[in-house]
Design a protein around this nucleic acid. Sequence first.
DNA 1: AAAGAAAAGTGCCGAAGGTCATTCCATTCG
DNA 2: CGAATGGAATGACCTTCGGCACTTTTCTTT
Lengths: 209, 209
Amino acid sequence: MNGQIRILIADDHPLLTTGLKMTLEQWDEFLVVGVASNGLQAVELCEKTKPHIVIMDMQMPRMSGREAIEQIKSNIPGVRILAFTTFDDADTVSGAIAAGCDGFLLKVIAPEKLRASLNSIAGGINVYDEDAMSRLRQSMRKKSDIDFSGRELTVLRYVCEGMTNAEIADKMGLRSGTVKNMISLLLSKTNCVSRSQLARYATENHLIS
Amino acid sequence: MNGQIRILIADDHPLLTTGLKMTLEQWDEFLVVGVASNGLQAVELCEKTKPHIVIMDMQMPRMSGREAIEQIKSNIPGVRILAFTTFDDADTVSGAIAAGCDGFLLKVIAPEKLRASLNSIAGGINVYDEDAMSRLRQSMRKKSDIDFSGRELTVLRYVCEGMTNAEIADKMGLRSGTVKNMISLLLSKTNCVSRSQLARYATENHLIS
DNA sequence: AAAGAAAAGTGCCGAAGGTCATTCCATTCG
DNA sequence: CGAATGGAATGACCTTCGGCACTTTTCTTT
């Protein structure tokens, strides 16, 4: 990367933004080109100041960080966005990632690590806080705590395909009555009331290939 | 991090491993403590050499990178693992992330970026290649390209809850016949054959809260 | 006023789901 | 060795629900 890395800060905490600005500007590779105090302003300033990286708080008035990220990413796809927050709960993390951020770091980060991370982001490498990432992984997997036999898993898959009991029975070399009973068992095991809910359960818990 | 960062290399390409080893050892902060040429050996060497970071190829004989990551992570949770591959297709990326890697980089990376990334990983920050990450995001979202009205989305949610047509009608202030018609419409719109498949469709495409 | 979407009604038949009883099988226990 | 236990597969019965096809009505849009 030739020249300085242009940075836009978007955060509604004045004390933090001034501290962050001063910290960044003590390093020659960074140039803070603007400071926004809410999401809407962040989108506007992004158009004007053409930053390489936006450091974006997730909890902001007027427009949430998530919406702001989506706006900016669709307006100017090349901009890199670092979600920079106080909290690392699964919702915040997955929201930021789904919105399209290129990094997720907590505000408690040591300055030198922030510096390295910003350089990585500018260089095309996404950086994420370790705990936040593991929390995201957990929420992605959301594995069921119920054990299913191989046959039960097969039935679940076929149910998700929308097959009838007779079709499932045919596929598995069973009688439709047997499949019916197996599904009754699955319904009570999973606390579901119908095969539709069962299909959702199986899908949500990644029980299907 | 005090002292050197201990690194274990796991890759079945001898030319790459020697090049990687020599590259890393020209920097004082790294110490290559072992080189494994397949997944099984990686797991074993990890027990013996107690590395801080494992640089792991995903395509390896004996045991895939994915299995090796899972093994190592469950044996020694503290070890940080960088998935280091030639390909960035969605399957490889999501496989590595689901297995629990702490970084995902392509082998074409510039040496200096690899150095910075390894330092980030050692410092508790996960690093991922930008393209790989965006590909993962795409596959995560798998957004439906069909437009649904507010009412249709409501019906979809209720179907996923396992509610009957009568119950849905009651909740929405409609008649069950109307709900039937709406669901028939939804089935044909989504190319589904039954409400079970519809429930899976809605769940898979994140159409429910 | 015409067109079109959303809502509602009707009838039909097969599928779904609950319950109970039975058979076949393997394992285990006395 | 025979008996007992328990899981898996099966069958039958019955009520409700699901999904289709068609028509009708109401409301909005233009």
